[in-house]
Amino acid sequence: MDKNCKNESRRDFLKKSTALAALAAASPALVKAGENDERIAALFEKIPLNLEINGKAYSLTVEPRVTLLDLLREQLHLTGTKKGCDYGQCGACTVHVNGKRINSCLSLAVMNEGKKITTIEGLADGDKLHPMQDAFIKHDGFQCGYCTPGQIMSALACINEGHANSRDEIREFMSGNICRCGAYPNIVDAVLEVKKGGQSS
């Protein structure tokens, strides 16, 4: 690699090249819009975005196309939230927005202006794990662990919503979180235990 390029990460390079690719792909529409430079500028404008993540206020700028998931992982390096399918089918990216669980891969970051986000990083109190995290460890609610942050965020919401009253109800309301290792029975055990302990986030 050229010495001068050392400071430019592969990620930055990719960002730039995809912006150029987008410009090329969008060119027919843009030729017309090109009559108005303001519109081209608007297309690539980074939008100011204020949100609160795990109790901390952030003032950011993002491209419109950046999802909440990519903002968390790529821009803020909160990599606890996982990217599984990136199409809303697996639940690995589950976070809480204003207390409600959502798939962060299907939410544009800019659509979350002024909202309060909680990710898996926001659960523990220093070194003291959240009771749901403890319960997942105690009941062996995972093998590879990739789906676990999403499972835990979803499990907390499941209890808060009042949908953790039986094993069947938990299974139904946790169906948006896929575990390819098949730790489901243990996940249900963990959720039930926290529910019975009357503990939630």
């Binding site: 959502i102 979803s154 169906s175």
Partner: peptide
């Protein structure tokens, strides 16, 4: 329909 997460969105 869908999942709890998607129904919240």
């Amino acid at each position: 329909g869908a999942s709890a997460q998607l129904r919240n969105m």
